[in-house]
Design a protein around this nucleic acid. Structure first.
Lengths: 221, 221, 221, 221
DNA sequence: GATGAATGAGGTTTCATTCAT
DNA sequence: GATGAATGAAACCTCATTCAT
């Protein structure tokens, strides 16, 4: 699948410093204001380029947004990739994943905020499909493969559907990400646990979530 | 806690038919277009009232949105309430919950879409707090209490933190709701499972999710 | 000249308490917000009557405003009337006038604010004429008559035009009123004198203004 | 004191013809309709620019108004400046001032109308202060200095307070300006003098006002 | 490649006034 | 006499996008 481009050729020709600056400024604007309230003219000004040039780089506001989003997702993906392709057993992987997500969420909360933003996007079925495809396919296949392998080797219960369990696993990890980064979910975390996620005992969260996942995967009557 | 009102007194004085119509039309508009792209004038026109009267009922667009949101949440809450206060054991409750959520999500997908919308809201910490408080506090306390009771009676593993496990449980259920209703999550479901959620075998989804939850809660080495 | 009515008959039939309350509330609203930003619906609510009844009393917002304005002007007029018809010499009168204006302005600043408001009114020549006629004719004729009498008795210089001098005198007194009550003029007073008019030495202001007027009227080469 | 800007940088970059047209059209609209009833869209259309561009030039309606106001005030200020800094004696200056004001008021009545408008402005103390400061400080200091110098040279009575007398002088001149330009004050002039100011004998008005001022300043018992 | 002036549709919100009861 | 629900025109302001230079 040759990944669809959401930027124009001119953007690739720009030097890296400029490219990075545009994306960083864009991510900051989109993640703090949300898609609708973000302002392209402001992004251009802050990135030190003219609005005209911005439109030489990106055809629409939406394209810029998706490019910013993808940039953030790529960085997280890279952090997770090495873990996922390792030969560790599933639960070892899970623990590493959770720990990485915790750290990453704190450092790169803006990326997660953009992901949260896109997940409530309204639009044509076609567009949504393309975006979801791009963002979720890699991770989902890794999850599913890992679980499949664990199934073969008898490391997990035999009556689980690897695809659904992968989805459940992802739901838990995504919720955790949001709790660390997005206002609504952070507040929700506070209501459930009584403490702010930033002052919470990370180790306990990790331990408990691992227990939850471990049991879910390995229980057998 | 006397719930904060997000509508003006005049709205209460309107007859029920009109009140319901406004809320239904509003929910339809907000859930299909999203908060920013929803148009108050359109809502008023479709509800058969003047825009001036709309502002006699709601001080701002935001207030109308929150009132619509609350309306939808109340309906789901009612459906869940009877289950949660019953004397059933935790896992029986869980199954009933999941089944109710599946049915409700299909029938009232717009309510869930609005909930999805609010969960990516950007705004003052204070406002977010008030909304989250209102929407999540009831359900969270029911979850936590149920788990606590199960803990006391030895129905679940003794080393779980009831508040965190309640949050994990909620994450799974919320994700399921979104999968049934919101474009992004539905597409994500398709990528993970290979089928559209509307054509999927509900019974299998329910069974698998129950297994996941049951094991998570009851495993003991 | 049978004074034009700016209210409907029904207003006269209302009991005095209600009439006064409406006028007081109206004066408060108009003087604090200005004509355009004042809100008739708010005035009605604060006065404890329905907006429908308000329109039984006054045909338009403007009529209510003029009635409020006239009410305030009448009160000042009464305070000045006794002074003006007395047999005192012109300069004695002037001093009494100034002192009365100082006191009145502090107590009834809202009335003066409304007067300030009307004096920048835009409208049909006819309407302006009617309002000015009503507000200014009484006072102007008293001023002119007094000066005319002083002229006859040789108390003031013989080469003054009584009508123009009356206007100049009025200009000074009006400016003083505004300095005591209207934001812009109060600030202007501070810029000229270096002190806030409310903390200024009233006696010095009065003395100096009297000197100014006295000399203007009595000098003869 | 670096004068606060009430326009954006883009306005400065526009060519002079456009800048002048915008200000002229704005002054016409504001002075004829008053601040609240003036319509920015109308101003933009008449000035031949889009409303969007107008907002590139001025952040708010208020900023446009103040810029228009300042433009008019500057022009009057320039006309008066040469007179005020001359070496003429105070009363010579006064006569020149009065004559200039008469002429200017007839030619640029719109500027005065805007000044009349601002002088009944309601708003935050801070905003009023800034505007008054800007408009009145230059002229007031010139008045006060001139009177102070006249005091030193014995040209005026020794018992006058230069700051208060400057304010009184300004009150008279301002009233004269208003009489020539603003509907209410023009009508008031007619009531006091019996003639319309535009058909009045200017020379007599000037002579009488000069007498009034001259005596006020120079009388000594 | 780069600029930024220019556009204008569109949305939220206000409030004087009417009228059925 | 009294109510207050209902109207709807109209105004300020935003911002994605274009295009001449």
């Amino acid at each position: 699948m040759p990944e669809k481009k959401y930027h124009k050729d001119a953007f690739e020709r720009a030097d890296d410093e400029r490219k990075n600056l545009i994306l960083e400024v864009g991510i900051e604007e989109f993640s703090s204001k949300g898609y609708e309230n973000a302002n392209i003219n402001v992004i251009a000004k802050r990135a030190g380029i003219s609005i005209g040039l911005m439109y030489k780089y990106f055809a629409t506001k939406e394209d810029l947004f998706i490019t910013c989003l993808r940039h953030g997702m790529d960085i997280l993906e890279k952090a997770l990739y090495d873990i996922m392709i390792s030969d560790d057993k599933l639960l070892i992987k899970a623990e590493k994943l959770i720990r990485t997500i915790c750290m990453h969420s704190k450092k790169n909360s803006n990326y997660i905020k953009m992901y949260n933003e896109i997940s409530s996007e309204k639009g044509s079925a076609e567009r949504i499909r393309a975006i979801v495809e791009e963002i979720e396919s890699k991770r989902s296949s890794i999850y599913i493969t890992s679980i499949g392998r664990a199934l073969s080797s008898g490391d997990v219960r035999s009556d689980l559907n690897p695809r659904l369990f992968a989805l459940f696993l992802d739901s838990l990890l995504t919720s955790l990400q949001f709790a660390y980064t997005c206002d609504y979910y952070r507040e929700k975390f506070r209501i459930y646990t009584g403490v702010d996620v930033n002052e919470a005992d990370d180790e306990q969260i990790i331990t408990q979530l691992l227990k939850f996942i471990e049991s879910a995967f390995t229980f057998s009557k």
